[in-house]
Design a protein around this nucleic acid. Sequence first.
DNA 1: GACGTCCTTGACGCAACCCTGATGCCCCGC
DNA 2: GCGGGGCATCAGGGTTGCGTCAAGGACGTC
Lengths: 227, 227
Amino acid sequence: MTRVLVVDDEPQITRALVINLKARKYDVDAASDGATALQLAAARHPDVVVLDLGLPDMDGVEVIKGLRGWTRVPILVLSARHSSDEKVEALDAGADDYVTKPFGMDELLARLRAAVRRAEPTGGGEDDVIVETAGFTVDLAAKKVHRDGRDVRLTPTEWHLLDVLVRNTGRLVGQKQLLQEVWGPSYGTETNYLRVYMAQLRRKLEVDPSHPKHFITEPGMGYRFER
Amino acid sequence: MTRVLVVDDEPQITRALVINLKARKYDVDAASDGATALQLAAARHPDVVVLDLGLPDMDGVEVIKGLRGWTRVPILVLSARHSSDEKVEALDAGADDYVTKPFGMDELLARLRAAVRRAEPTGGGEDDVIVETAGFTVDLAAKKVHRDGRDVRLTPTEWHLLDVLVRNTGRLVGQKQLLQEVWGPSYGTETNYLRVYMAQLRRKLEVDPSHPKHFITEPGMGYRFER
DNA sequence: GACGTCCTTGACGCAACCCTGATGCCCCGC
DNA sequence: GCGGGGCATCAGGGTTGCGTCAAGGACGTC
């Protein structure tokens, strides 16, 4: 199900959006200020963000920048301001679309669909979602790990971590990047999380967890997944 | 250079767009009807398409569908029609954005930039900068060094040093600059650090560490990396 | 309300890394 | 020939970072 984060300080607009979105089977979160928006985005990882620029606590453009610091989630800006400069500023800060109030709900939903569609994995279908190693098989799309003819159960956090590492197979992923992608942008120094969860992944996937062949530590820098 | 395909049957609009785009260093193709547009898109593979819906030979939505049959190139629709239905139809056919005439050139360009930015290779892309020498291979992005068919492990400080040197391949890098870039701005005279770490890099990477071919000392000045 | 799962947090031993000082070499100037 | 400065190399010690284990707490389920 597609998850939408709605950010607006006018209750009636939020209400209208939430009702319409839920009726169309979207999974909806709502925030009424920038801080909550950033927090929710980090916690819930929405597939698209609908953002009103006129927020009580911070400039909408700052919210855009805050999001763009760590995610490429589509951002659809909603604003009462028609000026060209406002639009340019928001778009160049990283917004994907800009709709002026008052807006037609049909149009907004169409633009939302367009934004979500764009962000979908490449339609070519040529990328291998399945990664095989000597010891186990990872299917990123199906969220399944197979080992010794059995499915391995992973917790959400373990999945998230594995996902980031596998998508960067062979490359070093910095500890800060890992923390931010898995735990959210406000993390970056809690390397003990990484230690604990890397240990769990190794215990579940490595043949000899204390001598890992696939989940490799680069001391002081980060971790690397090797097939 | 980014290539734009402009499709519009009104010469003055096409002209204005082409001039503005070329002034901003875009590579521009132009078509005045749908058939030419589809043909040019196939031949030139533009990075983004600006498409007027009111074409003489075919419905604009048909052009969108024709493009979407084989490419995900961003399509920015331009139209004189303000009706909500038109917008929804175009967006759902596969357009990425919809701008109504008359439009501000600044806004259009900003939306164009946003569309192009979105289409850029995803973070998980495989665009790695690899530097090769006679004895070893350095992949700066993946933080990998390959030598004699084996991966060489480097410590963070060694990496940092190698990074600065490789980025200045062939150029002399002063001792002070090296110290400040690797150890921080408050350093500048601790040349013994450099000696120790250059020795380690040579030991790990040079065929004959005591007669370096790639990490060259310039006495009294600094060091130089040669491929 | 009891249970289980998952995330967080702290403590401990151990290994890796960074800094430092000592020694010897080479090149250059005196 | 002699002395000195800059460089290469090596080895030791302090510090940091990592792996591991275990306990506490939040959350959802039955």
